[in-house]
Amino acid sequence: MRVLVFFSFVFMAFSSNAVVKRHDIPAKNYVLDKAPKYLIDMPHEGHGVLINPQWIVTVAHTVFYDYTGKKINVGNEAFEIEHVHIHPQYVEIDDALFHGDATPLMNFLKSRSDIALIKLSYPVTDIKPIDIYPNINEAGKEITVFGRGATGNGKTGENLETKSLRELNHFKNIIEDSNGNWLSYKFDKPPYALPLEGMHGAGDSGGASVIVENGKPYLVGLSSWQVWRGNLAYFKGGLYGTTAYQVRVSNYREWIVSVLGSE
């Protein structure tokens, strides 16, 4: 298993990137013509999710600087960002962690809270936000994940040159573990994979991970990073056997409620 992260340069190759697909399934099967309306593209890279008429949740590492006053498109309208709340347990990565053995970087990523909330200047009126999954029994559930990042397949890994295409894709997977801050799943190879098995890639950070129950979609996770073992110089994202981590949104319900209530 490998862990990936997509944060700037080397991190881009490690953090959430675009959808990586099965090698034996036509790539077009993963492509979507329309994004769910609650899926929001961040100003520069990655995604957020509309969870309230005036609030977007995303992973903190997609916020590259103070976005206050910057425009963000929600549906067909550009909204001004009024405020950004970064979780107090989010810490920027020291560049030294991107060199040598991956273990210190993996431990660091797992220890922090990679989540942020973005307040819009006024409420969205024409798009229904997605509700957060109300339970904590995510393990074993099938998820659908969305992203516009780099693509590739499980045999050869992701191709970072495709990242600029910004093609909307989706994939399926099964949550293997839900513990503390994180949900995790593994990119299985055929014949053990789901028909649209996949994993996130570079540029997919913050993309919604959704469970559908009784016909209703619920937000359970946000694409964040992948696992890698060994020397970071040999890192290759999106290979079969890779384990990916997503922010476990249910773990941050109290923090989300407190921030929304404070404003």
Rank of each mutant, 00 (worst) to 15 (best):
K128H: 04
T62S: 11
P123H: 08
G69M: 09
H83K: 15
Y90S: 02
E82F: 07
D114G: 04
S111G: 13
F108I: 03
H47T: 03
T58I: 12
H47C: 05
T58K: 09
V91H: 11
H87W: 14
P53G: 03
K128R: 13
K110H: 05
Y65D: 03
Y67E: 07
A116G: 02
G75S: 05
V59C: 13
P104H: 11
E45G: 08
T58P: 01
D94G: 02
A78W: 06
A78P: 08
N73E: 12
F64H: 10
P43V: 04
D66A: 02
V91I: 14
Y65S: 02
H83S: 09
V124P: 01
K110I: 13
H87P: 05
I132S: 00
D126A: 12
G100V: 11
Q89D: 15
I51V: 12
V84K: 07
D101Q: 09
M106D: 10
E80Q: 12
H44K: 11
I118D: 04
L105M: 11
T125D: 07
P88A: 03
E82D: 14
Y65R: 11
K71I: 02
I51H: 05
N52K: 15
F108S: 05
K119P: 04
D126I: 02
K128T: 10
T103Q: 11
H47W: 03
H61D: 03
Q89W: 11
V49S: 07
D114K: 11
H61F: 03
E92M: 04
K119Q: 15
I81W: 10
L109Y: 05
N52W: 12
G46F: 05
E92H: 08
P53W: 06
I130Q: 00
H99T: 13
S113W: 06
G69V: 10
L109S: 15
G69A: 08
K110Y: 08
R112L: 14
T58C: 13
G100T: 07
D131V: 07
H47G: 04
I86W: 02
E80Y: 08
H61S: 05
N76H: 08
H99K: 12
E45V: 14
V84W: 04
H85S: 10
W55I: 09
K71D: 13
S111Q: 10
K71T: 01
V59H: 05
F79R: 00
F79A: 00
P129D: 01
A96C: 00
T62R: 07
A96V: 07
K110T: 09
S111V: 03
